[in-house]
Design a binder for these strands. Structure first.
Lengths: 248, 248
DNA sequence: GTACGGTTTTGATATGAATCAATAATGGAT
DNA sequence: ATCCATTATTGATTCATATCAAAACCGTAC
């Protein structure tokens, strides 16, 4: 562990997108091989965050977007009366902070759900670069529109679907995101607590728990704590009416 | 009416941002006076849509963003099982289609809520231009992030707030948007039907109706059909715990 | 002016999930 | 290994809002 830190300190700021195993799903995906250096020039190797640590805080000056390298992040907004709404979960290869683009302050708070490392893209440099690389600009637009769409899907889920449907949708979403990283789509461990799931899906923790056991009794999933196995993906898809809707 | 059409056909394609009364809240807002021609060069004067007509349809090729010039637009997504979710209402000066940026197809369907005219920004030209005008690019990022934030607020509203709170929030949102256009923030007519309000806020029409009459009995608003007067904005703000959260 | 389809309102009842309450399991820390 | 705090599960009850049903209202076309 001390080793890891030493390693990073050896090359303190610059990260290598060339060597990163996530380059096919992260920002480099939109950059030509011969332009990749320009992206590397602006990326900073972020530090490692322990579970619960804040990557950034709502209403503090917006400086950077962060790509998750390992671990997982949750974002949430806190309303003035103190209520929290989890707005998203971010897995390796995904970009956090898009909801703050063009704003003075961060629009949400991001915290590590487990031990998490990130790459940092300072926003002024990133905007400058997207002005020069049309493909990268296009990709940023794409990512941001995806986040809008995802959020609309969530709104739909919240307003039209039952607790079971919401949870099935979340499980399937996680599944496909694991698969994108060439990991098992049927056997994974949830990065977040039941509480976060409940908050994200607009449910009470107790309801989440009950649905998990119900799914288990029906033989659709098998779950022990955060360890989940999807036994009947078909069934889950039947339960969910919608969520993914890819549209690259 | 025929006159209006003739007028537009006289200068068939090009719109004048210079002369537009909405230039201070629409895209021109982010463009220097001396660069404004470049924006005008790519804008097309869109046609006029009657109530109910589609501006664009979900899953058809994404070609343009549209700025509302007069009237109002609602966007919605239709899930595969046919359920509709209204995802937004767009008033003059606001940009429709951001949720499709960078995608091949439109992510939603947009239709006119009343007689509506629009300006059309072909997306290839717009992306090219934002690559050249950093301020415009920045503004696009800003608009898109605003839409993400708005959608997160909506999710919060849907998952944590009562029917009364949701409706109060919507009324206040509309109010502030009318005010931005120098119109009365307390006396306006709703561009949308109760049904659309209900769908947008994840409620049944009946519930919307009931809340309207309840607010009326409490002397908070006065409403007859789509005509609304906000009698006690304070009270509405008290009912709403959150919604606006400006963060320019 | 009258008639019609669609929208809005109002009332009565049913229900899914929240809340309240308690117990059980888990995972760090010592 | 044991203890404590946090997280998860299960059960009983309540409540806000959906649903079902019907009447009133409105705008538009004839």
């Amino acid at each position: 562990m001390a080793q890891v830190i030493r390693l990073h300190q050896a090359s303190p700021l610059k990260a290598s997108c060339h060597q990163c195993s996530l380059s096919n799903i992260c920002l480099p995906l939109a950059v030509e091989e011969n332009e990749l250096d320009r992206l590397e020039d602006i990326v900073q190797q972020g530090r490692i965050f322990n579970r619960g640590e804040h990557i950034f805080d709502q209403s503090t000056p917006f400086r950077s977007c962060f790509a998750v390298k390992s671990g997982a992040i949750k974002t949430s907004i806190i309303s003035e009366n103190g209520e929290e709404q989890v707005t998203g979960f971010f897995m390796p290869g995904e970009l956090v902070g898009l909801d703050s683009m063009g704003s003075k302050n961060y629009a949400c708070t991001a915290r590590a759900l487990e031990r998490t490392s990130v790459c940092e893209f300072p926003i002024d440099k990133l905007e400058e670069l997207t002005g020069k690389l049309p493909d990268l600009q296009h990709h940023m637009y794409h990512l941001m529109s995806q986040e809008i769409q995802g959020s609309h899907q969530l709104a739909m889920l919240l307003s039209k679907n039952t607790a079971e449907e919401r949870i099935a949708a979340l499980l399937l979403s996680l599944s496909s995101r694991f698969q994108r990283r060439r990991m098992s789509g049927t056997n994974f461990s949830l990065p977040m607590a039941r509480n976060d799931i409940a908050n994200f899906l607009g449910l009470a923790v107790e309801t989440v728990s009950r649905v998990f056991t119900r799914f288990q009794n029906q033989g659709i999933i098998s779950a022990r704590g955060r360890e989940v196995e999807l036994l009947d993906v078909e069934a889950l898809q039947t339960v969910t009416r919608e969520f993914s809707s890819q549209n690259s």
